[in-house]
Amino acid sequence: MTRTSPRPFSVRRLPGFTAIAITCFVLLYAPIVTIVIYSFNAGDSVALWRGFSTKWYTVAAGNQIVQEATLRSLVIALWASGISTVLATMAALGTTRARNYRGRTLIYMLINQPLMVPEIVTAVALLIFFSSIKIATGYSGLGYLILAHSAFCIPFAYLPIRARMEGMDLALESAAADLYATPWQTFRRITLPLMAPGIAAGAMLAFVVSLDDVIITEFVKSAGQDTLPTYMLGQLRRAVTPEVNAISTALLALTVLLLTVFFILSGRNTARS
């Protein structure tokens, strides 16, 4: 008598899994789809459909305040992603390319702490810290927002870089050292090219996080320093028009594009590892 092997466990066979999964996807994406659809509304209402039109994209593109907020958001995100990626790369090198030492787990915890602490707590702490500096120096430029975003984005850039470096074989670096390469030559010719996809993925993820941030920006910014998300938040407190939907759709498209590139790079990292 032959004994049949049991079928492997699959969560999809659980009762109600399909219905629950579909419900979750609908609740997650139905509001986003609604925003995208109503961004093409010809009328002034965000709730009543008056026909198809792209005029609100034209209105948003011609709005000088939107242009300034967009440029400001891009400048802050570029600087923040650059600074946080450099610091995250240095942290990844120090935690993956060194012999095991006491306190490494504590360092991991400190680097990833902004991911665990509620963002409102980080925002209040940054507000208090930078307010004292503003009073002492009298400077109230974008530097505070750049530094605040950089500090918050470090763990987002660190995770893919560290994951990439942990999957790299140390044999190549050891072979370079055996061939009398200096540490700098080994880093420039071996380590850096191998970790470049992880660095690019970390930079893109940090850029997206900085570009979309609202809470920290709202607490740290000075007067006249609205970014695109905070401008949209201010508009929602006033008269809401489909212009906000158009801006949201454009920002969503940019975020999806960057995240798609991020996941492609992450997939290549996994395949190469």
Rank of each mutant, 00 (worst) to 15 (best):
M1Q: 06
M1V: 13
S5H: 09
R7D: 15
P8F: 13
F9Y: 14
R12C: 06
R13W: 06
A19I: 14
I22Y: 13
I22G: 07
C24S: 14
Y29F: 15
P31T: 00
P31Y: 01
I35V: 09
Y38P: 04
Y38H: 05
N41F: 12
A42D: 08
D44T: 14
A47R: 12
W49F: 15
W49A: 08
G51P: 02
W56R: 00
W56G: 04
Y57F: 13
G62A: 06
Q64D: 14
I65R: 11
A69D: 10
A69N: 12
S73D: 07
A77P: 01
W79N: 11
W79R: 01
S81H: 02
G82F: 02
G82S: 03
I83Y: 04
S84Y: 01
A88S: 06
A88P: 00
T95S: 06
T96F: 05
R97T: 03
R97P: 00
R97Y: 09
R99L: 13
R99W: 14
R102L: 09
N112Q: 07
Q113P: 11
L115D: 05
T122L: 14
T122S: 13
L126M: 08
L126W: 00
L126V: 10
L127C: 07
I128H: 02
S131P: 02
I133W: 02
K134N: 08
L147K: 00
A148D: 05
A148I: 08
A148C: 03
H149W: 05
A151P: 12
F152V: 15
C153G: 08
C153S: 15
C153W: 03
P155C: 09
L159V: 15
R164V: 06
M168S: 06
L170Q: 08
L170Y: 15
L172C: 03
E173P: 04
E173M: 10
S174H: 09
D178N: 04
P183I: 11
T186D: 07
F187T: 10
R189Y: 13
M195N: 06
P197K: 10
A206P: 04
F207D: 08
V208K: 02
D212R: 11
D213S: 08
I215W: 01
I215E: 06
E218C: 05
F219M: 11
K221F: 03
S222Q: 11
S222A: 12
D226S: 08
P229R: 08
Y231F: 13
Y231G: 12
Q235H: 01
Q235R: 13
L236N: 14
R237D: 15
R238F: 13
V240C: 05
V240H: 04
T241H: 02
N245W: 14
N245M: 13
I247R: 03
A250V: 15
L252C: 04
A253K: 05
V256Y: 00
L259V: 14
F263Q: 14
S266C: 11
R268S: 13
A271C: 05
R272V: 07
R272E: 09
